[in-house]
Write a protein that binds this DNA or RNA. Structure first.
Length: 413
RNA sequence: GGAGGGUUGGCUGAGCGGUUCAAAGCGACGGUCUCGAAAACCGUUCUCCCAUUCGGGAGGCACAGGUUCGAAUCCUGUACCCUCCGCCA
């Protein structure tokens, strides 16, 4: 949620930020009107309550007291309704983009920050990961579809081992950097998936919900790691908290079909190691760069050529003030494809989940929250299979994973 | 799944229908003292609304309803935590 005070005091700046993100700036006027209405109702109601308190002091049954009670009861629903409406409306205002975020309408205007590595030139026609995985007997979408539906898959043998190796590789690397390894639940209550911005309904619905329960399958450990400290006030001296979380991730991907959606690029369930940071506001920009540098370290370690993109304002989404993606080279696509994303959500999620910091001076305020992909074990194996393939259909294992897998190449005799 | 017990400001913890407009302690912050610090002493330390200078008012005791002139306190429902039993990886 955005700071209502910011909307009141600086409506034009808020409108500008909203418009840059491609959201409707008129929402600001709706919020201001509802806020004014709310304050007027509070004034009236408080006057009545003061009267009630005065009458109650007399300490006896009174007809006037009864009348005031009825008047209060009659007015309270209108305030409740206004506040509910205000809450719903203000939730539609996204986090404002950072001043550093490049202005742009959509993903076409994202800015390439840098490139690392050189895409390999093949002296044979490279196969895509589906063909490679099937021939090697390590990746099986057919059985996934049979048992769970389309866009689910089974992993076998080295495919299964590679997933575990990738997770372990990322966990070991990040634990050395001071991130606390965490395994979280794969489900969370609605408050947490909604508070982190994952909707179960609508055009871009992500979250699967459990029938008859206030629970949803998480789309990322960001949800559970953000929920971990909900309603807490954390002493400044204890920050930052840096976590590397493991979870399965479930996504409806409603309406997300395109030419690159096949195979491991877009699936309903995958495993992910996700970084998550809580820090003081003035530290968040630095932490964001730290998360990005961790991601680059991971992909450099895997020897996958990549480029870093900074999202323009129009492609930031509601939560992020600033966001970087890493795109790894995907040979059969002939271009780079997203494998990580790191967002600085500033105080926006913290306000949703009521997570605050107690400053050294004694003041209390919302802290900043950031997330970043370490390894998604769907898209990263995709990139490994395609980049490390040999003419005979075997696939080399990146050096960094060899100790975890105990082999150097995946091949079938 | 069954039976009990519990949930109070940053923390510990009183209160169990009207001198409590949530006691007390701890911690934190400001001040006095000091060359400086510690100790001691004084003050501040939930949220919202109005005045925005002194201040005034309302709400808040897990959450949502209800009873009452008056609810942290009584009633109903829900969530979570603890103990025991059952079932089970």
């Amino acid at each position: 949620m955005i700071d209502i005070k910011l909307v009141r005091e600086n409506p034009n700046e808020v409108k500008k930020g909203i418009a840059a993100k491609g959201f409707d700036p008129d929402t600001v006027d709706d919020v201001l009107a509802l806020d004014a209405k709310r304050r007027k109702l509070i004034g009236e109601l408080e006057e009545l309550r003061a009267k009630r308190n005065e009458i109650a002091k007399a300490g006896k049954v009174s007809a006037e007291g009864k009348a005031v009670k009825e008047a209060i009861k009659a007015r309270e629903p209108e305030l409740a309704k206004t506040e509910e409406e205000l809450g719903r409306t203000i939730a539609q205002i996204p986090n404002l983009p950072s001043k550093d975020a490049p202005v742009g309408k959509n993903e076409k205007e994202n800015v390439e920050v840098r490139k690392w590595g050189t895409p390999r030139k093949f002296d044979f026609t490279p196969k895509d990961h589906l063909e490679l995985g099937k021939a090697l007997g390590i990746l099986d979408f057919d059985t996934g579809a049979k048992v769970a539906g389309s866009q689910f898959y089974f992993l076998y043998r080295e495919g299964a081992l590679m997933e575990l190796a990738l997770v372990r590789y990322a966990f070991d690397l990040l634990a050395r950097e001071g991130f606390v390894p965490v395994i979280t639940p794969d489900v969370a209550k609605s408050r947490y998936y909604l508070g982190t911005g994952y909707m179960p309904r609508g055009n871009e619905a992500q979250t699967y919900t459990l029938e008859g329960e206030d629970l949803g399958l998480i789309a990322t450990a960001e949800v559970t790691l953000a929920g971990k400290h909900a309603d807490e006030v954390i002493p400044e001296g204890n920050l930052p908290f840096k976590y590397i979380g493991y979870s399965h991730c479930f996504r409806q991907e409603a309406g997300a079909y395109g030419k690159y959606s096949k195979g491991l690029y877009r699936v309903h369930e995958f495993t992910k190691a996700e970084m998550f940071v809580y820090c003081a506001p003035e530290e968040s920009e630095h932490m964001h760069q730290l998360l990005l540098s961790m991601e680059e370290k991971i992909y450099q370690g895997l020897g996958l050529p990549y480029r870093v993109l900074e999202m323009c304002t129009g492609d930031l989404g509601a939560m992020a003030a600033r966001k970087f993606d890493i795109e790894a080279w995907m040979p059969t696509r002939g271009e780079y494809g997203e494998v990580t994303s790191t967002s600085n959500c500033t105080d926006y999620q913290a306000r949703n989940l009521n997570i605050r910091v107690r400053r050294k001076g004694g003041a209390v305020g919302y802290l900043h929250m950031l997330n970043g992909t370490a390894i998604a074990t769907s898209r990263t194996p995709l990139a490994i299979l395609e980049n490390y393939q040999n003419a005979d259909g075997s696939v080399n294992i990146p050096e960094a994973l060899q100790p975890y897998m105990g082999l150097k190449v995946i091949k079938r005799e």
